Computed example of a mutant assay.
Amino acid sequence: MKNRRALSMMALAVVFGLAAVALASRWLLRQTPASSNKIVVAATDVNLGQRLTTEMLKQIDWPAESLPRGALRDGSKLVGRVLKTSVLRDEPLSEAKLAPAGTLGGLSALIAEGKRAITVRVNDVVGVAGFALPGNFVDIIVNTQSNDRAISKIVLERILVLAVAQEVGRDETKPRVVNAVTLEVTPEQAENLDLARSVGTLSLVLRNQVDPRPGITDGATKGTLLGAHEAAATPAVPAAEPTPAPPRVRAQLAAAAPPARSCIGVIAGARRTQECL
């Protein structure tokens, strides 16, 4: 009797336990869709300009409360799209990081709408010792002759560096000395830059990434560069005063001079004469 009662209590406990597990599982399944969502992220590190493939994409659960702005959910629609910025593994993808649909891969995918890409030849000095890397902004100075005088003037400001040599990656911070830099410019800026490199020599000036203020200058000439220094270094020359002659020379000059003569006028009738003694 006692064994039967113990077995019935145990069976009842098992039934209640299974019911509790079933209810808890059902509750958790109902809560999961409300608290997380699947979004598309990069399955591996992908550089800008690359075309996305299926192997580069995956879906992961992401908390609904902190979904990234513009996060994408359907990875199948992203196959074949081109990145215009580098992404890291497990980084969410969005339209802001993708070139327009139909864009071919490579440098052309990085050029903003209405802009152009132009390449200028540089050396280790002109290229800011290799610190002008893709993604940086530079100003461009031209040194030329104007009205028979040398002048250096900033002709273009806040120009985006698209590539150095044949590299467009923006993840490196180590300087690279190259012989060419590709810049993103407007059509008008492209014309000015082409004219500037034909009339003088170009230099790149690396600028702060977040500083939008223009550098308004009149340009530097030899006069403005050295004018104040030359004025201070060259004293005014006083007017030369006549040097008095020595006493002996003055005496000789006085002796050589003819003696002074006194003259009187004589009137004789209608004639008038002058006699000197």
Rank of each mutant, 00 (worst) to 15 (best):
R4M: 13
L7W: 14
M9A: 11
M9N: 05
L12M: 13
L12I: 11
V15E: 01
G17F: 10
A20K: 01
V21S: 03
L23V: 14
L29Y: 08
P33I: 09
A34R: 14
N37P: 00
N37T: 15
V40Q: 08
V41S: 04
V41M: 04
A42C: 11
A42V: 06
D45K: 09
L48F: 02
G49V: 05
R51P: 03
L52W: 04
M56D: 02
M56K: 01
I60G: 03
P63I: 05
A64T: 15
S66F: 12
S66G: 05
P68M: 07
G70H: 04
K77N: 12
L78N: 09
L78P: 05
V79H: 09
V82P: 00
L88P: 00
L88T: 06
E95I: 03
E95F: 07
P100D: 08
P100S: 04
P100Q: 06
G102C: 01
L107P: 01
A109V: 05
G114R: 14
R116V: 13
I118F: 14
T119G: 09
R121H: 13
R121S: 15
D124T: 10
D124V: 09
V126R: 15
F131H: 03
F131D: 00
P134N: 03
D139E: 11
I140G: 03
V142N: 04
N143V: 04
N143Y: 01
N147W: 00
A150H: 01
A150E: 05
I151G: 00
I151L: 04
S152L: 01
I154M: 02
V155Q: 03
E157S: 12
R158Q: 15
I159Y: 07
L162M: 12
A165D: 15
Q166H: 09
R170G: 02
D171T: 08
P175I: 00
V177C: 00
V177K: 06
V177E: 04
A180E: 11
V181Q: 01
V181Y: 02
L183W: 08
T186K: 11
T186Q: 13
T186Y: 13
P187Y: 13
E188W: 11
Q189L: 09
L193N: 07
D194Q: 10
L195G: 01
L195A: 09
L195I: 10
A196I: 05
S198M: 11
G200H: 06
L202I: 15
N208S: 14
R213Q: 12
T217Y: 07
A220H: 02
K222S: 05
L225T: 10
E230Y: 07
T243F: 04
P246I: 00
R248A: 14
V249D: 12
A255H: 09
A257T: 13
P259D: 12
P259V: 07
A260E: 14
A260L: 10
A260I: 12
R261Q: 13
R261W: 08
S262P: 05
I264Y: 14
G269M: 08
A270N: 10
A270C: 02
R271L: 07
T273M: 11
T273K: 10
C276F: 15
